[in-house]
């Protein structure tokens, strides 16, 4: 049991590193099956036979350049998230023709998202390799900055905008980016394929599951909006 758990942990780290090196799913599946085969044959533990999983993944020499569509994918996801937030934020006031009041804190939050998320997306390898305490420190610093912005800017309203166009614009942005994600070649799933899977039917079953996960991942913000909008409208009416 312990051996299996440590083996799986080692394999997970190798797979993660290969993903970060932009290696395709078929090759990753091949590398994982090769390790499993060797460990079953030799009776060794993964560290003993292959050393550090990250170093081993790099030593295979399969690194590929960043996919060309990364910028488009990051921008689309960011815009989709922004659309979701605008829709949920403006839905309540829009339901009874009130304006949306944007405070300094809202602006600080928007800037944090617009700067922070691309920063993470384009430095994903470095972010994933951060030690837990380093990630914790950075997260705590970002949170402290937001709290400071909240305290300094408070409830000061910097703009009062019509809610309906913001809600509709946000909804369209969310739907548009989700549809783009659905049909864009950049978002096509690249599942890890086990070359030792017993049957083609098994492989197809696994790829169907991956396709569903990919579909739900792409549409999760729309599903979230469908749930959140009625809730925020109801809460707005309750408080109004």
């Amino acid at each position: 049991m312990t051996k299996t758990t440590s083996e799986q942990k080692w394999l997970d780290e190798m797979v993660l590193e290969l993903r970060l090196l932009n290696v395709d799913g078929a090759r990753i599946g091949d590398a994982a099956a090769t390790v499993r085969e060797h460990l079953a044959d030799s009776g060794e533990g993964p560290e003993e036979a292959f050393g550090d999983p990250t170093e081993y993944a790099r030593s295979l020499g399969w690194e590929q350049p960043e996919p060309s569509g990364l910028l488009a994918v990051v921008a689309a996801n960011l815009l989709g998230l922004f659309g979701f937030m605008a829709l949920v934020f403006a839905a309540g006031p829009a339901s009874d023709n009130q304006p949306v009041e944007i405070s300094g804190f809202h602006l600080a939050l928007a800037v944090a998202f617009l700067v922070g998320l691309p920063l993470i997306a384009f430095n994903l390898r470095a972010v994933v390799r951060l030690k837990a305490w380093q990630g914790g420190m950075i997260g705590a610093a970002a949170f402290a900055l937001l709290v400071a912005a909240g305290l300094l800017l408070g409830e000061t309203v910097v703009a009062s905008l019509p809610a309906l166009p913001i809600a509709l614009g946000g909804g369209l942005l969310l739907l548009g980016t989700t549809l783009w994600g659905q049909f864009s070649r950049h978002q096509s799933p690249d599942p890890v394929v086990d070359p030792t899977a017993a049957t083609d039917a098994g492989k197809k079953g696994s790829s169907r599951r991956d396709a569903w996960i990919s579909f739900l991942g792409n549409w999760c913000l729309v599903i979230g909006a469908v749930i959140m909008v009625p809730v925020t409208v109801w809460l707005h009416r309750l408080s109004g």
């Binding site: 590398a31 090769t34 390790v35 460990l39 050393g51 170093e55």
Partner: peptide
């Protein structure tokens, strides 16, 4: 010869 040397 360890797997970490052989397979790469």
């Amino acid at each position: 010869v360890k797997g970490g040397t052989l397979y790469p």
